[in-house]
Design a protein around this nucleic acid. Sequence first.
DNA 1: AACAAACGGCTTTTT
DNA 2: GCCGTTTGTT
Length: 738
Amino acid sequence: MGILEGLNPQQKRAVTAPPGAVLVLAGPGSGKTRVLTHRVAYLIRHREVAPWHIMAVTFTNKAAREMRDRVVELLGGSLDGLTIGTFHATCARILRREADRWYATADYVIYDRDDQEKVVKQALQRLNLDDAKFPPRMMVKLIGRAKNELITPQLYRAGAYVEEVAGRVYAEYQALMKKSNALDFDDLLMQLVLVLDAEPTVMKKYQRRYQHILVDEFQDTNTAQYALLKRLAAEHGNLFCVGDEDQSIYRFRGADWRNVRRFREDYPESETILLEQNYRSTQIILDAAQGVIRPNPHRTHKALFTERRAGARITVHEAYNEDEEAEFVVNTILRMIGASGRPQRAKPGDFAIMYRTNAQSRRIEEAFVRAGMSYRLVGATRFYARREVRDVIAYLRAVHNPDDLVSLLRIINVPPRGIGAKTVAALRDWAEQAGASLGAAIAGMAEGSTSGPGMPPPVAGRASRAVSRFADLLAGWVARSETTPVADLMDLILEESGYRDRLHDGSPEGEERWDNVLELRNVASEYPETTLSEFLEQVALVSEVDNLTEELTAPTLLTLHAAKGLEFPVVFIVGLEDGILPHRRSWDDPEQMAEERRLLYVGITRAMDRLYLLHCFRRSAWGDAELGRPSRFLDDLPPALIAGAGEHLDRRVGRRAHRDRLLPGLARPAQAERRAVLAPAGPSFETGQRVQHSVFGEGVVIESEPADGDEIITVAFEELGLKRLLASVAKLEAIGEG
DNA sequence: AACAAACGGCTTTTT
DNA sequence: GCCGTTTGTT
């Protein structure tokens, strides 16, 4: 009976609900995922369902991994055949298995948005359309939107002129994808639905296999995903969906929280269960969150409650600008970590700083660096988006799938090997005429090859020799790719292609890039058994957020989107200004504004004990400073929940007061003052003084300059070289004369 | 063909 | 204020 232990009555009811359609609408921190995992365990243990017959889908790999671990923990032992994974990974695997039913082969590659744009550019070129007039980004967006709605190029109907063009580009794009043996993210879903519809035997096969389907974060499903679920569940109707309409924040990728309503219409017999008890936050934080979300229309009201005490009130703070905002965050963290004597004092890993856009992370990072404090950044300049990483992956893809045009074009002359634009164009024409892919045509030019188009290559002399050399290289890698572990194959490619020497040019940037390449190699060497195909799939479908390590030893910086599903004792949300949150791109669309509100709701409900909401008086955008207007969402916080009431009791007044301040001649009023409060005169350091820093180790003070009532010192550390630190913040200890 | 310098567009959010 | 692309130079 261990499976039902420790569950509250609502949770128990959800876990043990009879098979059939079940909708669990759950508030934040209510143990949603717990209910899902216990349900899986319950089906296996008490309903005697074979693990083989269960499919549980989520949106992130992290959630999937957690779920699997917890099911294993509940039941003990391995659960062979249990399918737990993300929508995309699950679809990718089925498509690979059924590849012969459908246009691609099992070797297909997955294109991300960057690759998609390149394909669109190709398509525009072939259609003689100007890519300045029809921005590839927009085309990608329109194509993606169509795919999320299961609209094929044949079904695509235009309303506006751009869409008419988009329709043609879409058709050409799809033809190119097919030629390249490539699928984009949206294809993974749409193509699978198309296969199921076109092949009744395949449909039957998976309907029989997956007798019970469970979905987490159901509010984030798009039309294609919902269609897939409906098809798989069509025979038995065992569809168990868990979600929270108020946490739907992925509209931009087609998510439609109205699927929750559709579900109720499609399964009128379904049972709806609410989970309203929150196990995470204080009542004050919950009340604040509800204040923010309440104005949204069409919600299923949930009365969130907790058995925790009211807790500390929320701090709303106006900083002068981004730097002061960041400093407020860092200083507050340092204060809370340093506050000795308290029963439980905060640990660095207890803190999270959340923002609307990745661009906002930089100023916060800088403040942490100034303070000599380490931090953990999620996302931002994404590892897999770095040029060198993409280059190496392109090499691997080109080896794996010779038809992958985007990858081939990326590496054909990187590092420079004498195959210029003209040569490439000639080769492409040649391949086109012979009805072969560029990769196949080039392969025909390798030494001793008998394949290739039955025509002489269109290039001669130096260019011809260069292409042949490249073809030989490729052929050599392809020959070894079947039997060589991925990491070794990478070594071979890096060496023989000259890519390693190119990065290793002695410059610090080169070193950094090389480190990134090595990191990618590490990923590969961690799983020596992984095939090239599996490795490439993993690289395409696993995001960095998924790689978040569990043990937290430093404050976490992340976007509000990335924060979903996580919790932290202390949360700072920065940049709460109109134009940022809500983002200015959302102003003209009520649906989008509702989503911005949900985004803030998600952020607030990540906090367990303490919540800080920050906004700036001035914010610089692309260089010049603008005046920030406090976010309209702040108006919806019940004033009684806000600490230091005077300043922010009535936000309307606050906003009017703010407008009154928009007068000329306004010099930085609060800055010096605030520094004085936040940074009381610290110890002062002299040149030559030896110091000890908690993170950087030992060093010698090189320079000291006063700054706004504080002191900026430059220290030469033995290990790390020169660092500039703010004396009041840096936690330096003098250790005798040097 | 390879590099340096100027230019322009851009910021939501992610599988 | 950054990044990638285009343009000009050798």
